[in-house]
Computed example of a mutant assay.
Amino acid sequence: MPNSSGLRERKKRQTRAALSLATIGLCLERGWDNVTIEDIAAAANVSVRTFRNYFAGKAEAIAAGHVERTLRIADDIRAAPAGEPLWTSIVHAVQANFAPAGSADAGEEEFGRWRDGVRLLFAEPALQGELLKANASAQDELARAVADRTGTDPEHDIYPKLVAAVIGAGSTVAIEHCLHAESPTPLGPVLREVFGRLAAGLPLPTESGENSGH
Rank of each mutant, 00 (worst) to 15 (best):
M1R: 13
P2G: 04
P2Q: 15
S4T: 14
S5R: 14
S5W: 13
L7E: 13
K11D: 08
K12C: 02
R13M: 02
T15S: 09
T15L: 11
A17T: 10
A18Y: 00
L21C: 08
A22H: 01
G25D: 12
C27P: 04
C27W: 00
W32S: 06
W32R: 09
N34A: 15
V35R: 12
T36K: 11
T36S: 15
A41C: 05
A44E: 01
S47W: 09
R49C: 08
K58W: 09
A59K: 02
E60C: 08
A61K: 03
I62W: 04
H66W: 09
R69N: 04
T70E: 02
R72F: 06
A74R: 09
D75R: 12
D76S: 13
D76H: 14
I77M: 03
R78Y: 10
A79H: 07
A79S: 11
A79L: 10
E84Q: 14
E84V: 12
P85R: 13
S89K: 09
S89H: 11
I90D: 01
I90A: 00
V91G: 11
H92Y: 09
F98C: 13
F98Q: 12
G102Y: 00
G102H: 05
S103E: 08
A106L: 02
E110T: 03
R113L: 06
R115G: 02
D116L: 10
V118T: 13
R119D: 04
F122K: 03
A123G: 05
E124N: 06
A126D: 08
A126N: 12
E130M: 11
L131K: 07
L132N: 07
S137D: 08
S137G: 01
A138D: 01
Q139G: 03
D140P: 01
L142M: 04
V146H: 04
T152R: 09
H156F: 15
P160M: 01
A164Q: 12
A165Y: 15
I167L: 08
A169Y: 04
G170F: 02
G170N: 04
T172K: 10
T172W: 07
V173W: 00
A174H: 06
A174W: 02
I175C: 02
P184E: 05
T185R: 11
P186K: 08
L187W: 06
V190K: 10
V194M: 11
V194F: 06
R197W: 13
R197Q: 08
R197I: 04
A199I: 06
G201T: 01
P203L: 06
P203W: 07
P205S: 12
T206C: 07
T206Q: 08
T206V: 05
S208P: 01
E210V: 04
E210A: 13
N211K: 05
G213C: 06
